[in-house]
Structure formats: C-alpha cells, structure tokens
C-alpha cells in the first residue's frame, strides 16, 4: 500500500516536472538556439565576431545603453592593440579633477576608464526615452536565463504583431520579450554598420556579433575558468583514483 503511494508520488512528480519546468522559467516561448563558439566545456570567444560586436555596440547601442563595468583596457582580451584601445578610449570624454584651482574639467578617456554611460542617472535616461530605461548592458547576458540565446532572439524577434494584439502607443511587438511589448524599436537594420573585415552586416549577423561581444563583456574570465576547470577536474579524477586504491588497500586487512 505504502509502496503504491510512493511509486505514485514519484510518478506524479516526474510527469508534471516537464510541464512545471516551463512555468518556472516564467515564459512559455522557446528561444532561438545558436551554436555559439563559447558554449560547452571547451568553448572560447570568437574574437573576430566579438570585435565586430564591439563595433555594433558602439555605433548602434551606445547612444542609449551604457557599459559601465567594462574598462577599455580589458579590450586587449579581444585582440585589440594598446594603440587601438587608446584611440577607442579617447573618443569619449570624462570629467576629472578638481584641478589646482578646485575646478572640475573634462579630459579624453584613458584605457583605465570604463565605457561611458550615456545618461548621468536613471531619471535622465527615462526622460530621454519616453519613460523607458535603457539598462546598462555590462551584465545583460548573465541577467537573463540563457542570456546569449535570449539576446539574439530578442534582436531578431521584431515581427509583426499577431491579429488582434493590443499594442499601446510607442511600444513595439517582439516575439521574445516578456509580454511581447518592448519600448525599444528594432535597433538593427540591414547593413546598419560597415564591418571593416568585410563581413556582410545582415541583421542576423549583427545580432550574433553583438551577442558574442556582450557575452564576453559579462564574463571576461570564462576562458580561464574553463581551462583551469579542466585541469582541476582531471587532477581530481586521478586523485580520486589514487585515494580509492589507498582506501581499498587500507581496508583489505579487515576481512
């Protein structure tokens, strides 16, 4: 009798798990799935894609979205030279000081500065964007479940609203945004940027590249993490094998 209860309970749990899983995720829309270079145990960032993504970020997104946790000097991870980094940094201005007279002054960016935030605070950001707040993108890929797939889906998910869908003024329909109403209009356009490496700048390509760049921006240490992880786990497997042999040896004299 009790065994029946136990089996039933287990079966019920298992059978609703799949259903409940989708609920727990908070959204019932399946994201598009890209086979990213950085996925998996041995994944690394596609440097060329990330560099193109930086260009997309600076030319398309940086007007509204900050990247305040990423210092220019960290771009060396993506293969930029010191000169290139200095040039990128110098394109933004930063307030520094006080000087000898006690005045604050503006100076061009240096490698130790972080990417700028376009608005001084959230209220200013909202005022410039019809009340909507363009969030800082430094951690966006980690702040969403399956962040890289989510970001790619979002950027390529601007489709026509289905028949009868109520879309308030100033909002746009997106198949992947929660509740499908997003204040940001589709930011990417065909050939919106001109890639220096000649890659065709389709919306799909731009979406992929900026996603790779932002994934790096959120997790610059991913590659070291995975490579150290591999060595640690291999070492532990050998150690576990040795300890098992030792344990067997020590215990063998008991029987």
């Amino acid at each position: 009798m009790l065994r029946v209860i136990k089996s039933l309970g287990l079966a019920a749990l298992v059978s609703v798990a799949a259903m409940g899983g989708a609920q727990a995720a908070g959204g019932s829309v399946d994201l598009k799935s890209v086979s990213w270079n950085h996925s998996g145990m041995f994944g690394t960032y596609d440097r060329a894609s990330a560099q193109r993504g930086l260009q997309v970020y600076r030319e398309v997104c940086a007007g509204c979205h900050g990247l305040g946790l990423v210092a220019f000097r960290t771009l060396s991870d993506l293969g930029f030279s010191e000169e290139e980094i200095k040039a990128i940094a110098a394109e933004s201005d930063y307030i520094d000081g006080p000087d000898g007279e006690g005045e604050m002054f503006e100076r061009p960016g240096k490698p130790f500065d972080a990417f700028p935030t376009p608005f001084p605070n959230e209220n200013a950001a909202r005022a410039s964007n019809n009340g909507a707040y363009p969030p800082d993108l430094s951690l966006m890929v980690k702040a969403r479940a399956s962040g890289d797939n989510y970001l790619y889906s979002l950027l390529t998910g601007y489709v026509d609203a289905p028949e009868g869908f109520e879309l308030p003024d100033g909002m746009n329909y997106n198949a992947y945004f929660p509740d499908h109403k997003i204040a940001m209009p589709s930011p990417l356009i065909e050939d919106g940027v001109e890639y220096s490496d000649g890659t065709a700048a389709t919306i799909d390509q731009q979406a992929k590249d900026v996603t790779v760049f932002l994934t790096w921006a959120a997790e610059p240490k991913m590659e070291q993490r995975k490579s150290i992880g591999l060595r640690v786990i291999l070492f532990l497997l050998i150690l576990a094998g040795l300890f098992y042999a030792v344990k067997k040896k020590v215990w063998s004299d008991l029987h």
């Binding site: 532990l236 150690l239 576990a240 300890f243 098992y244 030792v246 344990k247 020590v250 215990w251």
Partner: peptide, 8 residues
C-alpha cells in the same frame, strides 16, 4: 582514507 576518497 575513506573520508579522503569521499572528499575527492
């Protein structure tokens, strides 16, 4: 030694 194995 058993705990060490478990630890590994």
């Amino acid at each position: 030694v058993k705990d060490l194995f478990g630890l590994a």
